[in-house]
Amino acid sequence: MKIAFTAAGKDWDAMIDPRFGRTEYIVIYDDSSDELSVIDNSAVKNEAHGAGTATSQKIFELSPDILITGNGPGDNAAKALEKMNMKIFVGAQDLTLKQALEAYRKGSLKEC
């Protein structure tokens, strides 16, 4: 199973980036190999408009099973994410990736 995080940094101790579209990084955790991979999202962050749709497109290509983020995607992003077979959990701002994963496993993150 692949879990995607919107992240402000590149490792387990990095904070969740509360933003979806303009997140600094997308970090993917693959629990079968127990490995992290990092995608730099700075190009999208610098789009004047439509960051949400551009980030959604990236997420689509990564095809995670789960997305863990902060405030949650805006309208535009939500419309794209709907097309994917993926569960989205929000409310993980102020947590590190590690804490966010634990929170998800305990079922304390809200599904949207």
Partner: peptide
């Protein structure tokens, strides 16, 4: 289409094309 759009108003998700009229 996705490549030419400077406003991220059209994206390709696998076999479908999504248009965002508001963008």
């Amino acid at each position: 289409c996705q490549e030419v759009c400077n406003f991220n108003a059209i994206i390709q998700l696998g076999t479908s094309i999504l248009v965002y009229p508001k963008l």
